[in-house]
């Protein structure tokens, strides 16, 4: 409940300051436009469109998700958070905020993508939806803990993608594989291994985050 109140505070703050939303919307529009211009009238393969979708999602996440902690650090309100909530509450609240942001952002990207690229046809939509949900949880969890780590650093802008890349790589690779499967029309049973990898990834990241956040938050 405390975490939900912190999440509500963050949503209200975001709606007023547009700290992350503006950056995300602009980034999504620019990236999809660049892809469109670079493709021109070429016909690209289904697999390539599936791959490009996750490229857009990865870089959009890099541009907006660090804001949860960076904005508090830059505005100097971190100390206020220390004084009103326990580390667990802070992490859960920020995670909820990033989850909502990731889901909203990725739904918009996926819809725009399917409207713009004719070759992006999913034969097994339900598999893609399961992968999409698990993937979004993974992106939000890992981005939140990385944002907490880099928030205190001097060169946040560079550090975030550098630190995120190796952590998100196994997730993105698995998601690419699952997107390929859903384009091919493979069943959920046939994608069991990849889906298990996604679930394990989320469990590991979330557990490690809750265990480590105390130390990151204190100093």
């Amino acid at each position: 409940m405390k975490a939900y109140s912190l999440f509500k505070k963050d949503i209200q703050s975001e709606l007023r300051t547009r700290y992350a939303i503006n950056a995300l919307v602009m980034f999504i529009l620019v990236t999809i436009s660049v892809i469109l211009f670079s493709i021109g009238s070429e016909k690209i393969s289904e697999y390539l469109t599936g791959g490009l979708l996750w490229v857009v999602i990865f870089f959009s996440a890099m541009s907006g998700l660090s804001r949860a902690f960076v904005s508090e650090e830059e505005r100097g309100t971190v100390m206020t958070l220390h004084l009103i909530a326990s580390p667990n509450t802070v992490f859960t609240g920020k995670l909820l905020f990033n989850l909502i942001l990731v889901f909203a952002m990725n739904i918009v990207i996926a819809l725009l993508y399917s409207l713009i690229f004719d070759s992006f046809v999913l034969k097994n939509l339900s598999l893609f939806i399961v992968a999409f949900i698990l993937g979004n949880i993974g992106i939000a969890s890992s981005s939140t803990i990385i944002a907490a780590i880099i928030a205190k650093a001097g060169s946040k802008g560079t550090l975030y993608p550098v630190l995120s890349f190796p952590i998100l790589l196994p997730l993105i690779l698995t998601l690419l594989e699952l997107t390929k499967f859903s384009i091919d029309g493979a069943s959920i049973g046939e994608s069991y291994v990849e889906l298990t990898v996604l679930i394990c990834y989320n469990v590991v990241i979330l557990t490690a985050s809750f265990l480590l956040f105390d130390f990151i938050w204190k100093d």
Binding site: K2, K8, Q12, S13, R16, R75, T77, T80, A85
Partner: peptide, 20 residues
Amino acid sequence: LVLYDEFSAQENLMHVCKIR
């Protein structure tokens, strides 16, 4: 110590109470 600039005094205090 910095409170949230984008909220009013009343909103700041209400948010703090809810979070606590």
